[in-house]
Nucleic acid binder design. Sequence first.
DNA 1: ATCTATGATTCGTG
DNA 2: CACGAATCATAGAT
Length: 313
Amino acid sequence: MRLDNMLLAEGVAGPEKGGGSAAAAAAAAASGGVSPDNSIEHSDYRNKLSQIRQIYHAELEKYEQACNEFTTHVMNLLREQSRTRPISPKEIERMVGIIHRKFSSIQMQLKQSTCEAVMILRSRFLDARRKRRNFSKQATEVLNEYFYSHLSNPYPSEEAKEELAKKCGITVSQVSNWFGNKRIRYKKNIGKFQEEANIYAVKTAVSASQGGHSGANSPTTPTSAGSGGSFNLSGSNDMFMAMQGLNGDAYPPSQVESLRHTMGPGYNDSLSANQIYSPREIRANGGWQEAVTPSSVTSPTEGPGSVHSDTSN
DNA sequence: ATCTATGATTCGTG
DNA sequence: CACGAATCATAGAT
């Protein structure tokens, strides 16, 4: 009977269509704890679920039919026998009972295997590691924005994480994961993130200064177009970074002000930089990446990571 | 098919 | 328990 309930809850049993998916979603949310954002994944999930349901119902019907057929068959036999010997209604009843029990036990098996299938399906879906989805562009943008505008101390507080999570439509632990990954990967290969850093630095600078007019003269210098003007992306950036690495509170986004006008073509920023400052943001620290030797300084032309790379699989 | 990017997990540390 | 580091496993690009 547990199985029945379970199947019902999963939307496998019960009425054909309709509330099933809702029930499934509710069940998933309830048991999973982590509710994976509903959208593409869920539609896929529902797809498979309905497949299972279809099979289940087909089988169920088949069994029922078989059961009926068998019952009538036995009844006929009994009727025939009743000509030669007396057969009490009790006996008939008993026979029917036995048949039904047999078939219901078969049905039980069907239910069980269906349950299993659903469980497997669900675990596959809930195992985020298996079905990893990249965050949306917007989410990444928000996260990067925060990261680069707090480059000197990219450790969002719990509140900040919550806020970011809400903005990005992901969970807090996903935000934590993201920052963990970002920090270490940034540190490992600063050069690789230069462009990104510039872009986001510029963005935040712009949004920070949006109240005040910006310089009227902006020859629209695209960041990607080499010289640009203020500084280029290859050489001096590393310097810039080196400085940051060497002396912790070096260049927070403030310096970015100067390059505000290097803003490229339309990078419209939909969400203003509504930063949440963590209460324990210490800006006295010597930098979270203290021991980092900026690879670019030692060997500007060499491949940045040179020694080891992450991909050791 | 291989390579890279990236989100998640695991493990050790303080 | 949060973090860094290493690693796993998949998505997306080539």
